[in-house]
């Protein structure tokens, strides 16, 4: 706390404690922060939790890792963090093989795995001091300062002295996040980070994620909430039943599922007829709305055709496909818990 307050707002790379060497990885693998090849985990008892995963997380991305509960997201994350030994396949994190080089990789990774875990009998601050003491790369001289900074960053400064068992779920979640932010990280792995948070808290987390990403930190965000991923992520991967269904930039994924033309009108029957004539497919009529797959021609002409046919058009729009539509299109199923 005796340090000048000016260090607080600096970029993470400059607040690194002195004496820490920065090596440029020679011949680094692609541009991937996480790269797995055929990563597979079969638990004792034969249950195949993750099946031949080929995941590539580009550096600097905010990567959404999507899938229903039980689809193998957490098992994958645990393998990436060296907590679980893969049955077969390889995983590289920050360009190094895991779990073999965990000692070199993990100090650069901040993680929130399956919710926060805290020592209830310690205060929030002491919990962070404890986790920081476990990190070999953490400089004890800057420990208190970094803990205070992390608490401040997640908005817990006022409750820092309270015992963690008195924390609400949202506060615990924030403290877990603070533990991941004790050091400047190259990669943040956040497993369901907004669990238990109120809408305001969720918004704060999203802002924080964007902030971190703009500092160059790659953020790997798992969630079962599609709109959450859609709001913050640049890339996404979708898992179901242990398999990777798709991965890529979010824009491409949504584009895979085409938007729908929506015409609002009291004359639905006429509208449907005209739309079919204009080449629209999959025309669906509902009350005062007609939806269809847009035809391959200028939509202005379609609208003109409707109007000249005497259809009274109240609304004419193309609804952009959401990630949810993309997901349903990919899996052909809802977003339910896998058995």
């Amino acid at each position: 706390m005796a340090e000048p307050a000016a260090t607080k707002r600096e970029r993470p790379e400059r607040t690194e404690p002195p004496g820490r060497s920065e090596h440029r990885e020679r011949g680094s693998v692609e541009d991937a922060v996480i790269a797995t090849r055929g990563l597979t985990k079969r638990y004792r008892g034969g249950q195949l939790a993750v099946d031949g995963l080929d995941l590539t997380v580009p550096a600097g991305s905010v990567f959404g890792f999507l899938g229903p509960n039980g689809s193998g997201k957490t098992t994958t994350i645990r393998m990436l963090m060296g907590l679980i030994e893969p049955t077969s396949g390889t995983a590289r994190v920050l360009g190094r093989p895991m779990p073999r080089e965990a000692r070199a990789v993990l100090p650069g990774v901040g993680a929130l795995i399956e919710g926060p875990a805290l020592y209830g009998f310690l205060s929030g601050r002491d919990n962070l001091l404890r986790y920081d003491a476990a990190d070999p790369g953490a400089d004890p001289r800057t420990r208190r300062e970094r803990v205070a900074e992390a608490l401040d960053r997640v908005g817990l400064s006022a409750a820092a002295g309270k015992k963690a068992k008195a924390y609400s779920l949202g506060m615990k979640q924030r403290l877990g996040l603070a533990a991941a932010l004790l050091q400047p990280r190259h990669l943040l792995v956040l497993d369901e980070p907004t669990n238990g948070l109120d809408p305001q808290g969720m918004r704060e987390i999203r802002t924080l994620v964007r902030e971190l990403a703009s500092d160059g930190t790659t953020v790997f965000l798992s969630s079962h909430l599609l709109d959450e991923i859609e709001q913050v992520c640049t890339h996404a991967a979708v898992m179901a039943q242990g398999r990777l269904i798709t991965q890529g930039p979010v824009a491409d994924l949504s584009a895979g599922a085409r938007g729908r033309l929506v015409v609002t009108t009291p004359d639905v029957a006429d509208a449907a007829r005209v739309l079919k004539e204009q080449g629209a497919g999959d025309v669906v009529v509902a009350e005062d709305r007609v939806t269809a797959e847009p035809p391959d021609r200028d939509l202005a002409d379609v609208n003109t055709a409707l109007v000249t046919a005497g259809v009274r058009v109240r609304g004419f729009a193309v609804e952009r496909a959401s990630l949810e539509d993309a997901f349903v299109a990919l899996t052909g199923e809802g977003f339910d818990v896998a058995g």
Binding site: E22, R24, V33, G108, G137, H186
Partner: peptide, 22 residues
């Protein structure tokens, strides 16, 4: 985008660290 690439974490653990954990 590739800024993270240039900052691979190779840190030398402090010899006193084990005592910090203890």
């Amino acid at each position: 985008m590739s800024r993270a690439e240039t900052r691979r974490p190779v840190r030398t653990p402090s010899p006193l660290w084990t005592f910090g954990l203890l």
